[in-house]
Design a protein around this nucleic acid. Structure first.
Lengths: 344, 344
DNA sequence: TTTAGCACTCTCCTTACGAGAGTGCTAATT
DNA sequence: AATTAGCACTCTCGTAAGGAGAGTGCTAAA
């Protein structure tokens, strides 16, 4: 069905390339002149007709040049795109930025977003890594004012949750520390289910802390992703794909409304293994907001343990080769960093 | 110099109001018809001439209606704007949203951004509270893998910093806890300067931890603001003030590039006391990116101890009354919450 | 199968023109 | 002195018409 001759593939690739560059319909003459094809424009037009019948390109109007269709981009991405690896100088610069200051995720995640945005000239998104299984690692109780206590909960994988508790009475820092230590001894590496199954203590302080721990662990479990980092918004402001559509249907709403974003991520990249890059073109009939956009996503982290997600969102007319390479590169980089600094 | 008659003030207010509503030049006839002025259009035009001479309004072209100038908005905001308090039902709903789940800042700050964006139909920004003086509150050392240790540092005010340390050798969790306790006993409430002045220990573990603590405290001290939360970006995508300008000059760049934002905040709201609302109209000659925009900012928190900042960024043509009220209201709300949950 | 040649179509730019909105000015009125 | 009715004037905006140019589709020849 989709058996294109190699010449047809070349022509489709060139149309995609040229249209990405100029945002204009591509004429047959442009192809042979600018890309040095040794065939005539009439031949190109004949091939274009075939491609149009297959649904890969279309004419905005009679006697206009050709524009790739959604299907055309899909075919291009799945069969024709050449991953134009980032120049090694660029790769070195980026790697260096990540490794020069081993400050940790709070530094790396915004940096990853910034790098992706710059490389792709689109909007980038990066989520903090999130554990597959929620398990207790460490707790700390810090007396603050009166009966108010700051609880800092560290989970296996390194997620940190904090909560301010208003306890029923004033406890000394000493007894708080003692209680925390009990929890640390008994709960280390225990999963949420295991903790829930334990015989509850009768001591009021322990009970209150336990409730808070379970509460936080439940909250964390329900999270689809960790914290979200965006960058490159100003890259797409002027593109018609983002601005023109009415506010209700803006692709950016997908990034601002967490339920929408969670839905998108759950149904795409979260079903994939780590390392695979997924390309979503034109909303795939499911997301109206993405009608004129494409999303490139990947998962990073450690399979079955800890993973976050990153990618870019841009107009459908996008340099896919570069963009896919950039996403893959930054994803691998973050996977390495997460592996090095895993808290287990 | 700027002594307007009360009728001139009314006319200016009406022009601002009508232009905010329609985004069109305002005709003299529109004013008397839609707002029921009991004077003739010719009189209104005479007054308009006076206002134009004072530089408060201008004509896009001869024989067109009038549009407020930057100066006009400035006068309007400083002398004429009426704070249209949020309807009490809205206030209750919002307050309820904040108080119903006392989850803490990680919940309140995005909520504040969301509320501001909805109320103003502009972009909102909220920064996490940041201490005026950096002081040690509590430290925790958690053994993870091999010689890797997770340090969790809590500062007075409640800021939490984490860092993964690669120590020179493997220490047991016991000795780590012991060391942490030493720090907690000796350093509580000590400022960065006080800690730096202390006689250094000779024990290698203590030295390494101390270096990390000082490092994190220095990093925190250099921070102008805490973490940044944005919302409402899709509100402004379609407005010409944001989209039309070229990418380099987009007002959104000010929000994406931290140095720019820090500069803006340092030179405006950070010089003010908590509670005051500052309105920046048209970049005030300093920020080219804001040529067609206005920014409304306030500081929240506890004077001289802990403060963050919040506000909105929208087109210059903006319902100032509502926007200022919303910013003030949410600011006060966050101030109360921060006061209630202060870690001291 | 490829290609030269050419008529045809559609966009886009320019010009022209009229309707309509809104003003500025003058002279009359309060 | 302040206000207003009246009216000519100016500028925008929408529509229509015409022409240039880009690009195609098709046919017939190579």
């Amino acid at each position: 069905m989709t058996d294109l001759t190699s010449r047809q593939k070349i022509i489709l690739s060139l149309i995609v390339h040229e249209h990405t560059r100029t945002a204009q319909p591509v004429a047959s003459k442009t192809l042979i002149e600018d890309y040095g094809l040794h065939i005539s424009s009439a031949t190109v037009r004949n091939e274009m007709n075939t491609l149009a019948e297959l649904g890969f390109i279309r004419q905005p109007h009679t006697s206009a040049g050709r524009v790739p269709t959604e299907e055309g981009y899909r075919f291009f991405v799945s069969k024709l795109v050449q991953q134009t690896a980032l120049p090694s100088a660029t790769r070195n610069t980026i790697t260096h930025q990540f490794y020069q200051s081993r400050r940790g995720l709070d530094h790396w995640l915004p940096l990853a977003a910034s790098v992706l945005a710059n490389q792709s000239q689109a909007v980038s998104l990066v989520t903090a890594p999130h554990s597959e299984k929620i398990a207790f690692k460490h707790i700390e109780l810090i007396s603050t004012r009166g009966s108010q206590v700051l609880m800092v909960l560290v989970l296996v994988g390194g997620e940190i949750r904090q909560q301010l508790l208003a306890l029923d009475e004033v406890y000394s820092q000493e007894s708080l520390s003692q209680t925390a230590n009990q929890f640390n001894l008994n709960f280390e590496n225990k999963s949420l289910r295991q903790i829930e199954a334990l015989e509850p203590s009768t001591e009021p302080l322990v009970l209150q802390i336990l409730a808070a721990i379970l509460d936080q662990m439940h909250l964390t479990e329900e999270l689809v992703t960790g914290e979200l980092f965006l960058d490159g918004l100003s890259n797409v402001l002027s593109t018609p794909e983002f601005a023109a559509s009415n506010q209700e249907r803006s692709p950016l709403r997908l990034l601002e409304e967490r339920p929408m974003l969670n839905d998108l991520l759950s149904r795409t990249v979260l079903t994939e293994d780590i390392g695979g890059v997924q390309v979503l073109i034109g909303g795939e009939g499911t997301w109206q907001e993405l009608r004129d956009c494409s999303v490139i996503l990947t998962r990073y982290g450690i399979q079955d343990q800890l993973s976050g997600m990153l990618g870019i969102l841009g107009p459908m007319r996008m340099p896919y080769g570069q963009a896919i390479s950039a996403v893959r590169f930054v994803g691998d980089l973050l996977s390495d960093l997460v592996t090095d600094t895993l808290i287990e």
